[in-house]
Amino acid sequence: MLLELKNIKKQFKNNHVLKGIDLSVEKGEVIAIIGPSGSGKTTLLRNINFLETADSGSMLFREQQIDLAKPTKKQILWARRHMAMVFQNYNLFKNKTALKNISEGLVFGQNKSKTEADELACQALDQVGLLGKKDFYPSQLSGGQQQRIGIARATVLNPDIVLFDEPTSALDPELVGTVLHDMKTLADKGQTMIVVTHQMSFARNVASRVAFFSDGEILEEGRSDEIFDHPQHERTQQFLSAIAEDY
């Protein structure tokens, strides 16, 4: 087991966003988290890498036990350096070029030399066909290009797991394809991923397992074909039929 989450709870004021989430991830798995907006999907990801602190719950990651409610600074940094995240609105560093966006984490998170980091960053850009844009700033790139660099920035760190937070939701429809293509390539290479997404085709065809989120709970979880073809829970059925045209 690479990652095991136990009983994660989080509330904002009186709003219970996470009501005791359990989820385990094997190495090489691609887990898609689907469900209606505001059901707590993003919050779960942000609790895993400590961008928010859970009220209670624990995480077993690389055989290290971490209390999600009371992580130490050392644990936070250690966990973040073995995970990576791709954001919905890319969050490329606006003051850095495409190349530096990718190499920054190698230099400051993994203590690689600048030259080595730049070399790895160049390779990563080349793999997504954006080497020609290496000296461009984010403002000069399309949303699709920015997100593909966002993915390269995450994967160049060679993380054990990559968290995707609705990576295609902010993109124009015609740009979604290239980003999904990059994600599929990554999955085929055996990269472990948790993907919060509204792209049902991706969840169905690429993910090995799907978790259906509703109201701060995982209502249903299983192999993707099981969830899509034989949803057990009524809410899952409603959700899938409402967005049926999507896949």
Partner: peptide, 23 residues
Amino acid sequence: VDAGQYEAALVVGMDTKQAFLRI
């Protein structure tokens, strides 16, 4: 400064000081 910039710096493994100084 966009709060997402700080988060992005943290998730690529910078500590808070590096995130502040570099980003």
